[in-house]
Write a protein that binds this DNA or RNA. Sequence first.
DNA 1: ACGGCAAGTAAGTAGGTACTTGCATACACG
DNA 2: CGTGTATGCAAGTACCTACTTACTTGCCGT
Lengths: 191, 191
Amino acid sequence: MISRERILEAAGRVYAKHGFRGATTRLIAAEAGVNEVTLFRTFGSKGALLEAVLDANDHCQQIRRLPDPPVDPEAELTSWVNDHLQRVRDMRPMLIHAISELDERPEVAEFACRGRAEVHVLLDDYVASLQRLGRADPAADTFGAVTMLISSVMGDAMGRPMAPDSFPPAEEAARRYVRCFLRAIGAGHSR
Amino acid sequence: MISRERILEAAGRVYAKHGFRGATTRLIAAEAGVNEVTLFRTFGSKGALLEAVLDANDHCQQIRRLPDPPVDPEAELTSWVNDHLQRVRDMRPMLIHAISELDERPEVAEFACRGRAEVHVLLDDYVASLQRLGRADPAADTFGAVTMLISSVMGDAMGRPMAPDSFPPAEEAARRYVRCFLRAIGAGHSR
DNA sequence: ACGGCAAGTAAGTAGGTACTTGCATACACG
DNA sequence: CGTGTATGCAAGTACCTACTTACTTGCCGT
């Protein structure tokens, strides 16, 4: 039953390119090099196939953790942000379509939303550790700053392809976001 | 020729809800309370109608300027960010669909991209003024910080409806983003 | 050699899509 | 009155869509 995998992969590619409405069963079958009937025999319907695709692309994304306790915040955060940036860039096309179809296909909501909350608590914990160690301003708006950092990563991954001039060069982006972030939480001078 | 306006408005609503593929000419005509044929007689084709819709919704958005010279950065920026936030929230559905359809309908690119660049130079100029007045750290990464602030506004407007817990309360959001921003550019202590 | 099972092939169903055509209606202006 | 001009209505075209049915092929283990 090798067809199942081929169809899943092909459907993922086609869906990422054209969205649900544009991802016709013909296109998917052709992309998979498989007969259209096989697609229906294996997944039952186009909707079920899409759910399987999102499931497959959801489970395989495990978010990296941050060191506890923090040692070198700038380096650790920069590396982590770079990682996350890459992950979001990879999911970008699928994410965009999932979001734009949220009203009509609510079952994609989990795929579209879940990541953000997890990432948020991860960063919140890290900053709390910094504060506990006296290495970040305890009065800073850490929640706001974390929100901004995450939005910056999302915005970069989503927006750079369409407006590259509005972002720092790709290889500097993570470091610069992190530095601004650290200044915002009063941890700008790492020692 | 009142039909033209009614069709344009209806098409805008339907497109914002369902995207290009989902915005069938039937739906639009029904929403406008107009015969489907009238739609084709007035705009020629569905594609031309969409272009007209984006044009109409593009021209009518004039971006507010920031005071020059700056007097009270936190207040001025907060008010401006609130404004911009509201504007992006209003365009959110249309924007999301435009972005997700960029590959298939490149003619929407301008609608999707133009705003960001303009906003960027606006904020850059404002921060440059602050630096010239000695009220912001001249060594700060202003470009990075501005990018982050804009991404935060976009991220808030786009993401809050799907993940409200990942953002500060709506009425505080602008102020908190601005405060983090000012700290990042070394202008945290406004006097 | 034979049964079972995944897969291909061909054809069809029922409905939706953008878009067209031909004709009837109504209102505005001279 | 007559004459455009905008609109509605009914029908039709050509094509695409998800999905089904019935039959065939090829391979795999026993």
